[in-house]
Amino acid sequence: MRKPYSISMIALLSFILVACGKGGDGKAVEGESGKSAAEPLKMVEFVTTQDGSPLIIKPELFDTPAAKEFATTGKNPYIGNKEAIEKGKKLFQLYSCTQCHGGDAQGQTGPSLHGPNYKYAKNATNKGMFETIWHGTNGGMGAKGKGLMDPTDPNNGLTPDEVLKIIAWIRTHGTTTGNE
């Protein structure tokens, strides 16, 4: 379990070093490239739902404007976005989340995701729910994040953008948006 973290930790560190290097040579502090180089420095600190230990996610996986915004703010821009919600529902079915959480995320063999009382209190925030989906739980749910979901295929699993869409759909069932 520890090994993949340390590898991605090294990757992140070198990314930060490169970014610092870029910033340090006094160039590229404005425009698109400057922006993307600066973002990882401001990334929110993700933690696992299992034990709260640091959760390192490759910055390059946050590859859409919404995912980038989430990575830096912890807010889910897809909340209330009809198109994203529709896609989120499809993804919820595509990965058979329905098997445990029910067709409407109301709970079946796994807990309800409607809130306001969540099995893991942190799921009340979009950052918390993102971490739970990405890295799994101690309650039996496996990690769904890209590279973690399927040990036989590093490209399998949900991208951050897809996780945010699923969360946007899940939030349509509750009274809170998770961005509060």
Partner: peptide, 20 residues
């Protein structure tokens, strides 16, 4: 009974329908 698209991943649920 509503069949839906679903993806097979070894060891993970693979249902492909939602029902009430």
């Amino acid at each position: 009974y509503e069949p839906v698209e679903s993806k097979y991943v070894a060891g993970q649920p693979w249902v492909g329908a939602t029902l009430t």
